[in-house]
Design a protein around this nucleic acid. Sequence first.
DNA 1: CTGAAAGCGCTAACAT
DNA 2: ATGTTAGCGCTTTCAG
Lengths: 336, 336
Amino acid sequence: MTERVSRITASDVALEAGVSISAVSRVFTPGASVSSKMRDRVLAAAEKLDYMPNVLARSLMTQRTALVGIILANFQNPMHLTTLDLFTSALQARGLRALVFNVSKGVDVVESARQVMQYGVDGLVVAAASMSQALVDQCARQGIPLVAYARQPRNAKVNVVCADNEAGGRLAARKLIERGYRKLAYLGGPATTSTNAFREKGFCDAVGEAGVELVARVNATEYTYDAGRKAAIQMLDEHRNIDGVFCGNDLVAFGVMDVARYRHGLTIPDDLGIIGFDDIELASADAYQLTTIRQPMSDMVQQTVDIISQAMAGQDSGNVKRLLFPCTLIERGTLR
Amino acid sequence: MTERVSRITASDVALEAGVSISAVSRVFTPGASVSSKMRDRVLAAAEKLDYMPNVLARSLMTQRTALVGIILANFQNPMHLTTLDLFTSALQARGLRALVFNVSKGVDVVESARQVMQYGVDGLVVAAASMSQALVDQCARQGIPLVAYARQPRNAKVNVVCADNEAGGRLAARKLIERGYRKLAYLGGPATTSTNAFREKGFCDAVGEAGVELVARVNATEYTYDAGRKAAIQMLDEHRNIDGVFCGNDLVAFGVMDVARYRHGLTIPDDLGIIGFDDIELASADAYQLTTIRQPMSDMVQQTVDIISQAMAGQDSGNVKRLLFPCTLIERGTLR
DNA sequence: CTGAAAGCGCTAACAT
DNA sequence: ATGTTAGCGCTTTCAG
């Protein structure tokens, strides 16, 4: 019984307005060349029939879809809701749409990328996930701008927008040492992630250079509270003398703090100093008051979208960009 | 210098394999009718040229895009990262893709819906955002399945998948009363949201029916920690005798707990009982150990995707579905 | 400024 | 089972 009326097309509007199809097309094409008389007639007919151009059909001719693929791993880290928030907003502000792919649960990044490319995306951002040479090549071949977001791949031929995690690690080390902590530990995120690698390197290098003892160096299996808690239990049980720890992210830091307080009865920041990473909303909660390192997410996303839209506009300088954004320490109450 | 090679098309493959274009098309069409000899030749050529069919061109004929629009407000509530996680996964599992729209910051839902429809989406889910009659009508007219997710609109003519928030509110009230709390308060989310309205109604009704005193009835401006904290400061300052509060969500509950503990020196659960909503990861953190109400998100998302894909398959019974999912109480440490 | 005609990459009858 | 022929809804020369 459902009257399955197919969508109104340009020719319907043309008929209604008594003009040609091309006329309709021109009215709906930004850089047009239409008389105001024509525009009014067409617009009236379109309004009446509730017409909207079919972007897909259009893209077949224009070779532009205004679609930007976002491949995101790690839907566990609450920070990435902000990532998606910022990306969708920034894209929408430029008239672009986000085609989101989830590669969390063992989904193949390369396969996802292939699928996303079948939609003729005008750009691709791979956020917090690794990517293959094949993917990079394919994008290059098809002239699709590709940017690795919040990731520092080894591959030199791809745009990178990322926090300067290594500098962030050094910053954490310097601050801990400056405040008198002398038995330091690193409790990072998954060993496989590039964020972990750089934060760890920066931290450990700076600790070593200062001649301070690095008591432990552990990885949580995920960037989550539970994983942080589990890792902390093991680490703190084994090394009772740790007095300062730099954590892979805020969630992991919360896990460490809870284990320290509720399992070992330690006082923060006197017995144990803590630094996190990301500055999520709850970092400022009274229960944690976490001193942490913030990355300029807004700027990073904006830059990413800029790179993509510039490349789309053909203002592509051709050479890839590697943008590392400085992190800042947000002082709260977990350092003495 | 960049050799802007346009994408490989079916005719390129046909040429390479020495067959017709239709043959190529058939090989890449699931319900095919191709000899294995042909399939091999085409596949070999496709492989060699790295061909992938253009889904947009295809959808022009098939009238299917495999695109499902997700219009989401409230990118502040960390629970919705789970929402997006589940939706993208469930859609991908069915070969569908998520076209995500952000209507957080004063973006018009109806306008977003129009834009999303220009992409010829096969389905539309409006998550945690209000929708207009116009949108409902337009979807109906074009035969696009539409479901309101985590929302209970007044409009009767739209599919609804939502937690039974009213029952959840009653559950909270009963539990608080059962544990001996007698000066109750409701500290909900934004007054404009349907979730708040139903949770509030259920809670207040049940409190009233039990003849227990409802001391305060307040709304946080957002479903966030900060908003919860602000509202709690005011509420707890004004009403010192409150001994039990049901919160709009877990984040708000954290705010209330922190104000109670760190500003008023109250002990939870002895001086004050707390119940939250959502059961986010941190609800189980040692620092909070929040007793809360969980909605079956997985089931809800699965049902939503089912409704959409059934409608797409034409197995549409025609009548709209209104599914209210039961909530369950997760006991931790904020009730005596 | 406007209309006619060709064609974007693909699928779906229709023949063979 | 395969090739041929028409389009899907739109943009874009090209004439006028």
